[in-house]
Amino acid sequence: MSLHTLGRKRPQASRRKLARRGIGSVILWAVLSLSTLVVLYPLVWLVAASFKPSSEFGRNNGLLAWQPTLANFVKVWGGIAGIPLSTFLVNSTLVACAAVVGILVSSSLAAYAFARVSFKGSKIFFAAMIATLFVPVHVLIIPQYVIFNWTGLVDTYVPLLLGKLLAVEAFFVFLMVQFIRNIPRDLDEAARIDGAGHPRIFWSIIVPLMRPAFITSGIFAFIWTWNDFFAPLIYLTSPEKYTMPVALRLFNDATSTSDYGATVAASFIALLPVLGFFLFFQRLLIQGVATQGLKG
């Protein structure tokens, strides 16, 4: 950096500065490490608690179990009220996968239109799309429920997925718009000269180049849909259709009085896919989040 210029000026000052920087670095590292421990503690607690037998909760307030056991997981696997845990996991997976497909398809179409097609009204609709990022969800919940109730779609997965299929989540559209804008137009132009229309350009040129955006969006879409609690809560009324978050709540209500260990183990299992995605794709996720703020 500017060590070069400093070095020329006053060697003593630079050495002092280096030393200060060295100690500064160590202090920073210490603070950051301590913060990491504190921040990650809840996760550590969750993992440790899931191996604690139910009877120890309330008596053993330490982190580690006196007699670690796998019994909680065994109990949890049996599910609740005759519905095995695997049913809920499958439900969540199906819904999340379908959401990913819906989001990728609809958001990329919309993003292409905003980024590459100069159509009349694009500015207004783009602004409208950005505006939807800031619309509080309260004002949508009840009317959407009324609509779905009126069309007899309550207790199906349609309400959970329809919005995804219609690019309702502006985050993904925005992310893809930013991404497409960064793709140079030369290839478009070349294809245009060859006689390609927008659909062709979209399909053969843009989509293949959007792989990173698709992967990032796909992972976020999966995780957010997996964790979604509100929509399944109000739309799913048959327990066998529950996704993990609502099943977890049923679990909590029905067994936390008698079997807190099972509730904790179920909480842990519910987080595993999210943590898994995170561990494998953290760089992509973080990059995806970062681009959101730039040129916001």
């Binding site: 199906l94 819904v95 379908a98 497909v101 398809v105 997965y157 399909w203």
Partner: peptide, 21 residues
């Protein structure tokens, strides 16, 4: 892409249409 699309569409239909019970 066509195969992916079909799988996806099928998934969407399966998930919204059917229920376990």
């Amino acid at each position: 892409a066509a195969t992916l699309g079909c799988i996806g569409l099928g998934l969407l239909m399966a998930v919204s249409g059917c229920s376990p019970s």
